[in-house]
Design a binder for these strands. Structure first.
Length: 868
RNA sequence: GCCCGUGUGGCGGAAUGGUAGACGCAGGGGAUUCAAAAUCCCCCGCCGCAAGGCGUGCCGGUUCGAGUCCGGCCACGGGUACCA
């Protein structure tokens, strides 16, 4: 008997779609448009099972939307600039461009095996000069609008490799290759003025109804709008030129409770003190070794250095506080100086205890009295007496004992802050100010493999943008990575150019752009990928916005926030219509694919990691295939990564079982937003099921023409219930539920005593329902059963509401909330009648024991609860 | 550290505040077969002979009723502005 042969079926239908141009995006005024986009991949060289999951989900949506009568745009490209290509260049002596384009060719071949409904005619890579040339044109437009500008910022500097390091290249304060202690170095760099849109980016989140709340919350917190008090400390004993110290605090209500002030090591005052004192200089140098990442700064042990300088309180010039330099104060946030109130900030409290500074509670819980204080309470230990910092919600009412109002006042922190702000404003001690945590976007990278920043530095004219007709400013090909640092810096024929303005000798900018710039507008480029301008107004107006964007939760803040900003900048520079400023109408964030890890340790404690394909189970032990005597340690299932080798090659799975099996498996079991663990047995089971469906289809015509009429009707009802559930599943990203329903229906179909006609209809519709998930198999079955044309172009089946209605319903009966029995009643029976029937049942009679129920809850169609 | 998530059988997971464990994997039993593969059928949270009891990370609360809502913990994952 013939068998399900995915290897033969799949290429055949891929050719058929290609010939039919089924997935070519075509503007059609007669249809609603639908733009579905999955975050494009970094071309690492190998298709990863996580890609399979991500792109299969998008494909289900795209194919479903095509079937429901939309003009679909479903493009694909490559996020092709970035560090790994330079690492490969250094490690393997290959050109980053050759390496990248080789990887793209590899991955595209792997992608094509998946049978995704992509319009490949729109493909591009961000490292194509055509793409980054358009990006350079927009950069120049943004310069003119004041949205791109230069200022100083610090980078991680490796003094041995003489190169700038990314945060991930800094391990415990040392360069990952050289092992040298990393320094912070200040460079003049390019920035995008994203802060100009802080309020707008925050407010517009409220209109993103189809974004996950968690993503919106993360972005809100990241933008970090706060209302606070701006004031200046007076200074005593500070170097000349430093008369006061501007500070910003969000806790104006605690202004009577501070015990110290602190500044960042990079603060101008700290730098001035550094010049005077070797001890200060040594401490600042120590602070700068932590690196630049917030995580490193915040988790490092909190250290301070008493400068000997005193600050004076704005409301009381006689009140002096010590001024510290502290390693946890960030120069990038606020003014680079803080006021420390230990009683109401845990970090300040830790600091105060470490340096023996006083702790003054500004407020206590409202129920806290002197009497209670005498005896103590397990619910509140004052910070003065060793308790933790007291940081209640701003809406909570507390008792203020040390503030600018009357002692003993019971109000909320918010009210106290408002009153204090007003008082400071009245007396000229400070002013209320709104501040954002969001900083401008530093886009300069001192690297080769990125989009060149299209400006020229001229001694006579200053910073001059390149002429647009000279774009793209292409990366030179003849470079080498033998010396550390950016090859563009030491490439005279590329670097030395004539000034676009005066024609005199000048130098190109040798910094390239952050790769987040590349990915901040690719969605717009897909609407007109070959246009001479970054976008084509008509195409953008038609296809924008992205109706459904799909990608990893790891991009919740940076990529998505930068894209939202860039879309606004594109609108401001005439490259996107107004409606495009929020480019993604709906967002779905999928989970990662995880796998357990396998490792051994040698005598020196070094860990060696093994691929899942290198190990096997033997007699309950996990051992190396190559040497079964060696037992490996099985670690927890974590995000697949090359370094841990816990990766599964999807190509092997596809070659063995077929793309449909891989697709079916990644959609089943786990909900899409959750992580999924890859297991070999699951893939086997998926394949078994698809084989079964194929077999059922091939055997339909062996059924008797006349079946049991009741079975016909049952099958029809089940079919329509399945249509309904699968449709709902796809619409709501419940792919795993849709798959479970399809499993259940297949079971029912295989057991059904229905006649040939009913089974044929059920089978054909099943093929349609499976088509978004297992498109090749669906086409094959469709053809087997005599369906005309491609199932990919068939109209999506619709559930008949009349067939979804149930005649009777079974409800559980609970006694005191515990299920004791059940009752089956007509679906339309009223509450009163149900109550009567329930009270008559043996179970309830027994429970009541002659008495009457205390309470009787009937939720028609759902449940009955008798309280006795 | 801070922000955001997640936690349910041996495993992946299902469940508008309403029968906890759908569907699948693994496991056990059976049918078919000379035998096997493939396929089909049945069983399958834990304790208990049973009646019954206990069970959704832990502790507490709201409710007739909590996996679901609230408060406090714990563990794990993502992000933390130069990984993408």
């Amino acid at each position: 008997m013939a068998r399900y042969a995915a290897g033969e079926i799949e290429p055949k239908w891929q050719d058929a779609w290609s010939e039919d141009e089924t997935f070519k995006a075509v503007r059609d005024p007669g249809k609603p448009k639908y733009y579905v986009l999955e975050m494009f991949p970094y071309p690492s060289g190998d298709l990863h099972i996580g890609h399979v999951r991500n792109y299969t989900m998008g494909d289900v949506v795209a194919r479903y939307k095509l079937a429901t009568g939309h003009a679909v745009l479903h493009p694909m490209g490559w996020d092709a600039f970035g560090l790994p290509a330079e690492n490969a260049a250094q490690e393997r002596k290959v050109h980053p461009g050759d390496w990248t384009y080789g990887n793209i060719a590899n991955m595209k071949a792997q992608f094509s095996k998946l049978g995704l409904s992509l319009d490949w005619s729109r493909e591009f890579a961000t490292c194509d000069p055509d793409y980054y040339g358009k990006q350079q044109a927009m950069f120049i437009d943004m310069m003119e609008k004041g949205l791109a500008y230069r200022k100083n910022a610090v980078v991680n500097w490796d003094p041995v490799d003489m190169t700038v390091l990314a945060n991930e290249q800094v391990e415990d304060g040392r360069g990952w290759r050289s092992g040298a202690l990393v320094e912070r170095r200040e460079l003049t760099q390019w920035f995008f003025r994203i802060s100009q849109y802080s309020d707008e980016l925050l407010a517009a989140l409220d209109r993103l109804d189809n974004w996950p709340d968690k993503v919106k919350t993360m972005q809100r917190n990241w933008i970090g709008k706060s209302q606070g008090l701006a004031f200046s400390f007076g200074l005593k004993g500070a170097p000349e030129g430093f008369d006061d110290l501007p500070v910003y605090t969000t806790r104006a209500d605690t202004m009577r409770g501070p015990s110290f002030a602190a500044i960042a090591a990079d603060h101008p005052l700290a730098r001035a003190l550094e010049a005077q004192s070797p001890e200060v200089a040594a401490f600042c140098a120590q602070c700068r070794r932590i690196g630049t990442s917030e995580e490193a700064l915040e988790t490092a042990e909190k250290l301070g250095f008493d400068t000997g300088v005193k600050v004076t309180h704005p409301a009381d010039p006689d009140w002096e506080l010590p001024l510290y330099i502290a390693n946890f104060v960030l120069m990038d946030y606020g003014t680079g100086a803080i006021i420390g109130c230990p009683a109401h900030d845990q970090r300040d409290l830790d600091f105060a205890r470490k340096y023996d500074l006083p702790v003054h509670s500004v407020f206590v819980p409202a129920w806290w009295t002197d009497e209670v204080a005498d005896h103590g309470s397990p619910d509140y230990v004052p910070p003065e007496r060793g308790g933790p910092a007291f940081v209640p919600a701003k809406t909570e009412t507390v008792k203020y004992i040390r503030w600018f109002g009357e002692a003993g006042t019971e109000i909320t922190c918010q009210e106290a802050m408002d009153q204090t702000l007003a008082l400071f404003d009245e007396n000229g001690w400070g002013t209320a100010r709104t501040q954002f945590r969001l900083r401008d976007w530093g886009l300069s990278r001192q690297r080769y493999w990125g989009c060149p920043i299209p400006v020229v530095h001229c001694d006579a004219c200053g910073v001059v943008p390149e002429k647009k007709e000279n774009l793209p400013v292409e990366l030179p090909k003849d470079i080498d990575f033998d010396k550390p640092g950016n090859p563009l810096d030491r490439h005279p024929t590329w670097r030395d150019v004539a000034c676009p303005s005066c024609g005199g000798p000048a130098k190109r900018e040798t910094d390239t752009m952050d790769t987040f710039v590349d990915s901040s507008w690719y969605y717009a480029r897909f609407t007109s990928p070959r246009a001479e301008t970054p976008t084509d107004a008509e195409e953008a107006a038609y296809w924008m916005n992205v109706d459904q964007y799909i990608g990893g939760i790891e991009h919740a803040i940076l990529h998505l926030l930068y894209s939202r900003f860039f879309a606004r900048a594109m609108n401001a520079t005439g490259h996107l219509p107004e409606k495009g400023v929020e480019p993604f109408d709906a967002l779905f964030t999928q989970g990662m694919v995880t796998h357990e890890t396998y490792s051994t340790r040698d005598a020196t404690g070094r860990t060696t990691w093994y691929f899942p394909s290198d190990v096997e189970e033997r007699d309950g032990r996990t051992v190396l295939k190559s040497d079964p005597a060696v037992e490996v340690t099985v670690g927890p299932s974590i995000k697949m990564s090359k370094s841990k080798r816990n990766v599964v090659d999807p190509v092997a799975i596809i070659d063995h079982y077929g793309a449909d099996t891989a697709r079916w498996f990644v959609l089943s079991d786990s909900p899409p937003e959750r992580d999924v663990e890859w297991t070999a047995s699951g893939a086997e089971a998926a394949h078994r099921h698809l084989s079964r469906v194929w077999r059922l289809a091939s055997e339909v015509d062996e059924t008797a023409v006349e079946g049991d009429p009741e079975a016909d009707q049952d099958l029809l009802r089940a079919l329509h219930r399945t249509i309904h559930d699968v449709t709902m599943g796809i619409e709501s990203f419940g792919f795993n539920s849709a798959v479970a329903r399809l499993y259940a229906f297949t079971n029912q179909l295989s057991k059904s005593e229905a006649g040939r006609g009913a089974k044929r209809e059920a089978m054909q519709t099943l093929a349609q329902l499976m088509a978004p998930m297992t498109p090749h198999l669906a086409e094959e079955i469709w053809q087997m059963l005599g369906g005309k044309g491609l199932v990919a172009r068939e109209e999506w089946p619709e559930a008949d509401p009349a067939l979804l209605v149930e005649d009777s319903v079974t409800m559980p009966i609970q006694i005191n909330g515990k299920r004791r029995s059940e009752i089956t009643v007509p679906a339309d029976m009223g509450r009163a009648e149900i109550e009567k029937l329930v009270l008559d049942t043996d179970t309830v009679q027994k429970a009541l024991n002659g008495g009457s129920p205390k309470k009787l809850i009937v939720v028609p169609g759902r449940i009955v609860n008798v309280v006795v």
